[in-house]
Every structure is written in structure tokens, then in C-alpha cells.
Amino acid sequence: MSQKNALVDEFAAKAQAVSAFVSRVASPEEALEKVMAMCLERSACELLATGCELPLSGDAARLCDGKQQKVVAAPGLKKDLSKKLAKLCGDSGVRFVTEGLRDYVAGVDIGFTVADRAIAETGTMVFNSDSEDLRLATMVSEIHAALVPTSRIVATAMDMAPELRKTFSGAPNYTAFITGASRTADIERVLTLGVHGPLELHIYLWEDK
């Protein structure tokens, strides 16, 4: 097995160990199709906004009311991909947003992004998150789906140190490491996913070169 394959396998195993769903795709387009399929099959007759079905205060319930339609958010995609996803959404009656995510704090069903880097030793994805919309898409979505081009996987975080230094030097900068879904164990130490951010993280590995 080549060194690169070993890295990809390690990344996949480590990401799965922190409850990410990892699958392989032949192309970015295939990832989009998977995202759409997931969006449609999930909660066929209800909108994804976890917690809105529970007894809430007035303020929290009103915010829930703000979400009336299935939403897929994908800021920062390359033009052709963005167009393709927009069409897939349009065909299925799903709202597609690429900016102004602040207006969707009530809830986004799926946020789709492309990782800039990935770190095999911990199953971590790295995103340059200068864009507020990108940050929000990876945070307020019920499901975060991300494409990881396998050429972008490095072995360890320390291997990225020179690159990180360079990135930070181009301030302002907001770089995010994301490993698994949002989690808490704050009540009786019971691990619970999706306390603030995504409840699920789906990773699509694409062998780009």
C-alpha cells in the first residue's frame, strides 16, 4: 500500500472513531448527489431543526418558527459545483444559500463545504474560515457534509506548522480544525452529539490526483 493510501486510511479510521460518517466518492459531483439524497430522505415530512419539537421558551420557539423550509448552505464553493448544487436543490424544492447565513441561525439542514486540509493522526479537517458564512455553515447546520480531496491530507498537525504560521501571518485570519460532530458530556458525563453545532458529520473522500 502506498504511503498516501495509508494516510487516507488512517484519516478515515480516526474520523470514524469520533463518530464521523466517512465514504468515498469518485468525483465532487457524486458528493453533491449524496448530499441531496441525504437531505431528501431525512425527515421526509419534518424539517430538520433539532430541539424545536421540545418544550422551549418563547424566544427559542419563535426562532424555530423562522425555519419553514429545508435549507442547504454551501458558501465558498467553486462556481461549477455551486451551480450544480443549486440546480439539485432547485429540482427538489430545497432552498439553496451561499451567503447571508446569519439569517439562517434558526437552522440549516445541511452545510456543505470543501476542506482545505485534513490531518490523518486525529481525523481532523482544516478550514480557512475567514468567511463568516463558511463559519456559520459549519456551525448552525444540523448536518455538516464535507468533501476532503485526498491530496490535501497530511500526517500530523505538526507537519502543518509552517503552513499554519504562514496562514496566521496573513491576518486577519480564522482557521478552524474540525474533528467529529459537536459534542458534550456536561450532563452526567453522558456523551451527546450536537449540543451547539452539527449533530452529524459526513466526510466524502475524493481521490483528486
Binding site: E132, P172, Y174, I178
Partner: peptide, 21 residues
């Protein structure tokens, strides 16, 4: 701390990032 290899999120923030408001 918690027996995790890394926390779910590590944010590296340098200077004021984009903020619509």
C-alpha cells in the same frame, strides 16, 4: 483532560475576522 486525541474544534483566530454586523 477527557481522553480525546483532540477536541472537536480548535479555532485559530488572528485579528478581526469578517463580521456582517
Amino acid at each position: 483532560a477527557t481522553g480525546q486525541a483532540i477536541t472537536s474544534y480548535v479555532s485559530w483566530i488572528t485579528g478581526p475576522a469578517q463580521c456582517a454586523t
